[in-house]
């Protein structure tokens, strides 16, 4: 039963997976509430260009991926507030196209499809000591950063304009936040894969939104669901020999379905008054 933990690559997989499972949904809450949930998808494609560049140059690609993703994230932030304020998704699409174009060219130059494939779909067996050395400290920095700036991030996510009025350094916070997002995405590519990161950003948070009754609960439940998904996914992937990215995502889909059920159940049991209030039309 515990043989799964006797392999050192699985130990590393679980360690990295749990860090990712906590940090990605934590960042994801704020991203989703800012309506930027597809940012993970975008940055993953850009980070892929960094990975391909690293492979092409024959060096360890993760730091390059992080750097490229950070630059792209700052680019998105700039576009979002200047050229395309009001159409946040347009700035995402632009950067995504640029990243994918660059990645395609670099992949064809690098000529190492196996390595690229592992970053697209994730792989546990490939988590190395080198990965641990970078993922553990950065994961800790990100978790600490969100902890320290929690209320500021919350205010900015709720209403940027008002936050500015109340003296929150909105611009600085957005930049810090975007750098964190880029780091998280580049780090998680290793285990869940670039194509699937946005699912881990969205699904645990979507499930939490169904159940939670406050912002604090939303954050807590998102992280809880993220961690459950990762562990369940890793176990399934080990015993059934499946790609971990896929099993992790399907586990989080399962949790989302449970959350829907839970909500329906709660609605059924609530007194009539509650239902009327919930469905009251807003006349503004």
């Amino acid at each position: 039963m515990w043989e799964i933990f006797s392999y050192s690559f699985m130990q590393r997989g679980f360690l990295v997976g749990n860090i990712i499972g906590l940090v990605v949904p934590l960042i994801g809450v704020f991203l989703n509430l800012k309506r930027l949930s597809l940012i993970g998808h975008t940055l993953a494609h850009v980070a892929l260009a960094g990975v391909a560049l690293g492979i092409f140059l024959g060096i360890y690609p993760v730091p390059l991926a992080i750097m490229v993703a950070v630059v792209a994230a700052l680019g998105i932030e700039k576009l979002r507030h200047s050229a395309y304020s009001g159409y946040a998704e347009l700035s995402l699409a632009i950067i995504l196209a640029m990243g994918l174009g660059l990645a395609t060219i670099l992949i064809s130059l690098a000529d190492s499809n196996v390595a690229v494939y592992s970053y697209l779909f994730g792989s546990i067996t490939l988590v190395t000591r080198q990965d641990l050395m970078i993922i553990i400290p950065l994961g800790a920095v990100i978790a600490l950063g969100v902890g320290i700036f929690y209320n500021g991030f919350f205010f900015v996510a709720f209403n940027e304009e008002e936050a500015k009025l109340s003296g929150v350094p909105v611009k600085l916070f957005n930049i810090i936040f975007m750098i964190m997002v880029a780091m998280v995405v580049a780090l998680s590519m290793r285990i869940i894969g670039g194509l699937l990161i946005s699912s881990l950003i969205v699904l645990p948070v979507a499930a939490a939104l169904q159940v939670a009754r406050s912002f604090r609960q939303t954050v807590f439940l998102s992280m809880l669901f993220g961690v459950i998904s990762v562990n369940l996914g890793l176990v399934l992937s080990f015993y059934w020999d499946l790609a971990p990215g896929g099993t992790i995502i399907l586990a989080s889909v399962f949790i989302l379905l449970l959350a829907f059920l839970f909500k329906a159940f709660r609605k059924m049991r609530s007194p009539k008054g509650m239902i009327i209030r919930e469905e009251k039309v807003d006349y503004e």
Binding site: L33, R35, F154, F158, N159, A208, L209, A212, R213, S214, F215, Q217, T218, D282
Partner: peptide
Amino acid sequence: FNHSFPAT
């Protein structure tokens, strides 16, 4: 604001 924003 987003009326489904999960805050009390």
